[in-house]
Design a binder for these strands. Structure first.
Length: 884
RNA sequence: GGGCUCAUAGCUCAGUUGGUUAGAGCGUUGCGUUGACAUCGCAAAGGUCAGUGGUUCAAGUCCACUUGGGCCCACCA
């Protein structure tokens, strides 16, 4: 051993060091290789503006486990990294920085502003990447992509043009979600509906023919009344039947508006009469189209009332609401105000209340794209884990709406549409040129006066191409062929619609193939109150802080161990102590082994070295437990049960390997077989734990005698099924029980020396002779009883061997001094329970349904169990009678 | 309105084809530990598995309903 290990594991000494070495030695790279099976994960590209939060930490820890595991399993495992340009988010960040200089983006102009964003990206865009490295992510950084790389942008343009040519992209005036702060359209998914306490205002509109008569309408947004062009009622509504077709005078504006009838109107709600504002409400828009109403826009893009509202012009929409209400009140036309909860869309970026707004935007027709994407999931070609997300996905896909893809911002992929002014002058619908490259002149009239569409594309319009655009689609190349379709996608539930569903559609549309086979949806990280963790709420636990305090491995282990089957995670800081303690435990166990290791003894092949039968029970037991654990971990990882795998690894190492095995072998630690087994288990265990805790496993690995390569280059241990033996395990479990019993007795006897009487302790199950012999020495050692004499005395009445302790006499393996009545009660209870159990078993074995279906072995073991139970009842009854 | 999800020890949670005695971490209590580890060890206490009914030889697990949380979707003015 080169250097002494410190008593405590110190992650700071190891993490950055090993990450650098892994990178320098190219250990993250994955290549197309004919003799290996590909395994590829594309990272959910974090925003360039991103900083690592717990959601990232969880998401990427899971991916890293999969990649490192598959790599060790011999796959060519590629983790494709990259970042997303995150249109609105990034533009907001840069605009904020500009604001500090007292500048607006308009002051710079488009070109300068965009180059400012690029500058920002160069400076800060790698923050999140460096943080992923801190987390230990084994991404192939040589391949890192950005959604606005030149060839990636080419892919985006290509997709736009193809869809346009297929008539799946169209332009139109529609009501969209408009963020007045970002001043752009948002897709439906980007406008999240939040419940608000608001008011329902009842406004009175006078009849044109008879101004003394009114119809009341209810609205939550009274300022939009300035744009009303009708009032609608249900044709079945008797209250209003006589008014249909007549006119009202819109107050304040004094414009006549028609009363129309439409069956979509709910007679129960409000007054049953609805003001219709076709330019400011999606439902009203539909009514407007249907009934040929006028569309009057009353808002400017910044959310202020526009010039058409005359005296209200320039007022913010909320200020205008108050003013309009005041005025109506003065006119005596505000009938009443009632409290009302409503849900209003909020910009997912800046949380401003969005406004339904009529504007000209680009849309993708989604229904045709959805078809194959629905079929693939229905046919299980793509599987969601946990499966319940399948339903969520299908539900959305079956009701899919067209996707508004244009955004009125500057940072992003500019829409590849050009307008010929000359042609448009003749016909406003003509003169649209959609082109992969900027055309020099109009193909129709040869005019060179062309301007490009001002808008950029929704960020997700580039992200949905991620699984293949990262491989330089539409160019053809070897890697794309080898790694696509990718294997697993690991992501959070909130982007199933934004991203997952659209990637599946894009995969089928442009690659004619699914983009990935498995989708693992993990839970959302919440604080201990159940609120979503976010920086703005101030409830976030910063993963980097945890790394600094507890270490990366601790962070990763703790996160993984508490994430079960996609259930949300309620996090508090204490949870990371378990990870830290575990890392320290591994460290100290390794330290103990290395201190006691004779390197010249252990350089042998475990399997060739000995046969199972030649080992003592303890070594046999730990080998069996190790391989049992290995097979369980493999199965759990293949089933995406990461917490189960982590739990098995923890329980094995701490409670079996450390608590029992290392304690038991102390007296025999210099024996050759013990040396070999102890060393081999440590060495193999490090490989198992490596995907979960990459740094500490490498650090210890490198201190093993003769370690050459990185642990990353090691193969995952092969399963040695022959070393798993359930009988061996059972024997030791019984022995442990016995040892603990004796320990307790000893404690009790020390407290009450007067109670020293002859006690005979029986083992309440059949331990083999061999195990009993071995036990004697361990008992002496562990229980620290010096006057212990072991005999293999056989007690025929109960068909058992006994351990006899001098001065002790016990009939049951019970701790301490025995209260006879208490014991009788306990025994009676046990007998009762056993009898119930026997009845149960007998029913089971009598059931043909069971006996014919279950394999013969299982039926057999059940029969044996039943026989055992009968035996036990007999024994207990003997004891019961003896005690009487 | 539709859908999903949760209710298991004082707390936070595991428990996936129904099958001996329902587990872990933290906390509590007792005992222990100066040579791997106090970021430690051993043990104890603590559970009518939310409630009711059903299916079954057998239910924490499957079904129905009830109660109480959380989340998502939807065009309620």
């Amino acid at each position: 051993m080169a250097e002494e290990l410190s008593k405590q594991y110190n992650p700071k000494d190891t993490e950055d060091k090993w990450y650098k070495i892994w990178e320098q030695n190219n250990l993250f790279s994955a290549q197309a290789s004919a003799d290996k099976i590909p395994y590829c994960i594309v990272i959910p590209p974090p925003n360039v503006t991103g900083i690592l939060h717990m959601g990232h930490a969880l998401n990427n820890s899971i991916q890293d486990i999969l990649i490192r595991y598959k790599k060790m399993k011999g796959f060519s495992a590629l983790w494709m990294p990259g970042t997303d340009h995150a249109g609105i988010a990034t533009q907001n960040v840069v605009e904020k920085a500009l604001a500090k200089e007292g500048l607006k983006r308009q002051d710079l102009g488009r070109e300068k502003f965009v180059s400012r964003v690029w500058e920002w990206k160069q400076l800060y865009g790698t923050t999140i990447i460096n943080q992923l490295k801190k987390l230990g992510c084994a991404c192939d950084w040589e391949r890192i992509r950005f959604t606005m790389d030149q060839d990636y942008s080419a892919a985006v343009t290509e997709v736009f043009v193809r869809l346009y040519e297929k008539k799946l992209i169209y332009q139109g005036h529609y009501i969209i979600n408009w963020c007045p702060r970002c001043q752009t359209a948002l897709s439906d998914e980007e406008a999240s509906h939040i419940e608000l306490q608001g008011n329902l205002y009842y406004l009175k509109y006078p009849l044109k023919d008879n101004p003394q008569e009114f119809i009341s309408v209810a609205t939550t947004r009274p300022e939009t009344m300035l744009g009303d062009t009708a009032v609608a009622v249900n044709p079945k509504d008797k209250r209003y039947k006589k008014y249909v077709g007549k006119y009202l005078i819109l107050p304040i504006v004094n414009r006549p508006i028609k009363i129309i009838a439409d069956s979509t109107i709910d007679m129960e709600f409000g007054t049953g009469a609805v003001k219709v504002t076709p330019a400011h409400d999606p439902n009203d828009y539909a009514l407007g189209k249907k009934h040929g109403l006028e569309f009057i826009n009353v808002l400017d893009p910044d959310g202020k009332m526009n010039a058409s509202t005359q005296k209200f012009a320039g007022l913010d929409r909320f200020k205008a609401r108050e003013t309009v209400l005041e005025e109506l009140k003065l006119l005596g036309l505000l009938e009443k105000t009632a409290a009302h909860t409503l849900s209003a869309g909020h910009c997912y970026r800046c949380h401003t209340i969005v406004e339904p707004y009529l504007s000209k935007q680009w849309f993708v027709k989604m229904k045709p794209l959805a078809k194959p994407a629905i079929a693939a999931v229905k046919k299980d070609k793509i599987k969601f884990h946990p499966a319940r997300w399948t339903k969520v996905y299908l539900n959305w896909m079956n009701n899919i709406q067209d996707w508004c893809i244009s955004r009125q911002i500057w940072w992003g992929h500019r829409i590849p549409v050009y307008y010929c002014k000359a042609c448009q002058a003749k016909n406003s619908k003509a003169g649209i040129i959609v082109s992969r490259t900027k055309p020099l002149k109009c193909p129709k009239c040869s005019s060179e006066d062309l301007i490009q569409d001002e808008d950029v594309l929704d960020t997700w319009f580039s992200s949905w191409l991620w699984p293949f655009a990262t491989f330089y689609w539409p160019q053809k190349n070897k890697d794309a062929k080898y790694f696509y379709p990718t294997a697993t996608l690991v992501t959070a539930p909130e982007i199933i619609f934004f991203w997952v569903a659209r990637m599946i559609m894009a995969g089928f549309e442009f690659k004619k193939q699914l983009p990935f086979k498995d989708v693992y949806i993990h839970g959302t990280v919440r604080d201990s109150q159940g609120k979503k963790m976010s920086k703005s709420l101030g409830n976030a636990i910063d993963p980097l802080e945890i790394i600094a305090e507890y270490g990366t491995d601790a962070l990763r282990y703790s996160l993984i161990s508490i994430t079960s089957q996609g259930q949300d995670i309620y996090l508090s800081k204490e949870k990371f102590e378990q990870g830290r303690n575990f890392a320290n435990k591994i460290w100290n166990a390794a330290r103990f082994i290395l201190i006691n290791l004779k390197p010249e003894e252990v350089n042998v092949d475990l399997c060739l070295f000995f046969k199972r039968e030649q080992l003592d029970p303890v070594n046999r037991w730990i080998l069996s437990r190790f391989y049992t654990t290995l097979s369980k971990v493999e199965k759990d990882l293949d089933d995406f049960k990461f917490n189960e795998a982590a739990g098995s690894l923890y329980a094995f190492f701490w409670h079996e390997f450390c608590d029992w095995y290392l304690e038991l072998i102390k007296p025999q630690i210099s024996q050759k077989t013990t040396q070999v087994v102890m060393y081999k288990i440590l060495e193999k265990y490090l490989r198992l734990i490596h995907p979960f805790m990459p740094f500490i496993s490498e650090e210890i690995w490198q201190r093993l005698p003769g370690a050459k390569d990185s642990i990353m280059q090691q193969h995952w241990p092969h399963l040695q099924g022959g070393l798993i033996n359930r009988k061996d395990e059972e024997q030791m479990e019984l022995a442990f029980e016995l040892i603990n019993t004796i320990r307790n007795m000893r404690a009790e006897l020390e407290v009450n020396p007067a109670s020293r009487v002859d006690i005979q302790l029986t083992v309440n199950n059949q331990l083999t002779r061999e195990s009993l012999e071995m036990l004697a020495s361990y008992i002496k050692n562990l229980a620290k009883i010096n006057n212990l004499i072991f005999t293999d005395q056989y007690i025929p009445q109960i068909n058992q061997y006994a351990v006899v302790l001098k001065d002790l006499h016990v009939v049951m393996p019970l701790a301490g001094v025995i209260n006879i009545t208490e014991q009788l009660e306990k025994i009676a209870l046990k007998i009762e329970k056993l009898k119930a159990e026997i009845k149960n078993k007998e029913g089971m074995l009598a059931n043909k349904n069971f006996t014919s279906r279950a394999p013969e072995e299982i039926v057999e073991t059940e029969r044996n169990k039943l026989a055992d139970m009968h035996e036990q009842v007999k024994k207990l009854e003997v004891i019961k009678n003896g005690l009487h």
